[in-house]
């Protein structure tokens, strides 16, 4: 078993355990911390696939910015206690069964497809994940989507401010 395989299995198990703990943690703070573990594991997978730009961006954007925003909101609303009322068990069983059915069907379809047989994703090699190659393509072929995404960010910022703004006190009927 080579080092790459050991790393792959370790990161996969870490991601799956983290995702499961996100699901079953009672405390929202613990869920957020486990989700950060998942993001680190996925970044490790990106590094293993030699997609270094995406690994760093994943860490900065997800683990750095988005999860801090989540933590901030949870602590702002003082939710760090398990005050969540429990759904009845029927709903949990129904959710788990429907998710498990989807899992089984998708895995069966994929493992039965002939297109995916004997295909490998090259690890530790290739230079398409490097920032030089990605930047060249991004600023030649994908300039228009890039600029549109800046407009999207602007509108998201305006939208967040407008939604989060404190409303004027209206007389409650």
């Amino acid at each position: 078993m080579s080092t790459t395989e050991i790393l792959f299995w370790f990161l996969s198990v870490l991601a799956l355990v983290g995702a499961t703990m996100v699901l079953i943690s009672r405390n929202p703070i613990h869920s957020i911390l486990w989700l950060i573990v998942v993001f680190f594991a996925i970044s490790g997978h990106y590094i293993l696939l030699n997609a270094q730009f995406l690994a760093i961006v994943n860490l900065i954007v997800y683990a750095g910015a988005i999860m801090v925003l989540f933590l901030f909101v949870v602590m702002l609303m003082n939710l760090n206690s398990d005050t969540e009322p429990q759904k009845n068990n029927w709903m949990k069983i129904a959710g788990a069964i429907s998710g498990g059915c989807l899992l089984l069907i998708m895995i069966d379809v994929v493992s039965g497809s002939s297109d995916m047989q004997n295909k490998t994703a090259i690890v530790k090699e290739g230079n398409i994940g490097l920032i030089k190659v990605l930047g060249k393509v991004l600023f030649t072929d994908y300039v228009v989507p890039f600029e549109i995404s800046s407009v999207l960010f602007l509108s998201a910022m305006v939208g967040a401010v407008v939604i989060g703004k404190k409303e004027k006190e209206t007389p409650n009927p």
């Binding site: 799956l16 995702a19 499961t20 996100v22 699901l23 929202p28 869920s31 989540f70 909101v73 949870v74 939710l79 969540e84 009322p85 759904k87 709903m91 949990k92 129904a94 959710g95 788990a96 429907s98 998710g99 498990g100 989807l102 899992l103 998708m106």
Partner: peptide, 15 residues
């Protein structure tokens, strides 16, 4: 699928 099960079974909007 773990994400889907989470959406279906949890009630906390943040989770």
């Amino acid at each position: 699928c773990i994400g889907i099960v989470g959406v279906l079974t949890r009630r906390n909007a943040i989770i």
